[in-house]
């Protein structure tokens, strides 16, 4: 059981609200695309992940449990 972050690049508009919540997990690139720096974050990052996912205005992020 672990956490996994799923990004739908088609929905992402590159605003970086997730990055503001969790700068170690997300980074918006120069071209406006988003990179998930760690798509299998450790369990102690759950709160950060949830905040990042909830902050996304275009619902481009999902947190799933593998």
């Amino acid at each position: 059981m672990g956490l996994r972050i799923e990004l739908d690049p088609g929905k992402c508009s590159g605003l970086g609200l997730c990055e503001a919540e969790a700068p170690e997990l997300f980074e918006v690139q120069e071209d406006g695309s988003l990179t998930v720096l760690d798509d299998h974050p450790s369990a102690d990052r759950r709160a950060e992940c949830e905040a990042a996912v909830a902050s996304c205005p275009t619902e481009a992020l999902r947190l799933v449990e593998d």
């Binding site: 508009s13 590159g14 605003l15 970086g16 990055e19 503001a20 700068p23 980074e27 918006v28 690139q29 120069e30 071209d31 406006g32 695309s33």
Partner: peptide, 15 residues
Amino acid sequence: HDMLRKLVSSAFTPK
């Protein structure tokens, strides 16, 4: 919209 907005969005990211 996204094509145009992405041209400027990098200036407004948290970093």
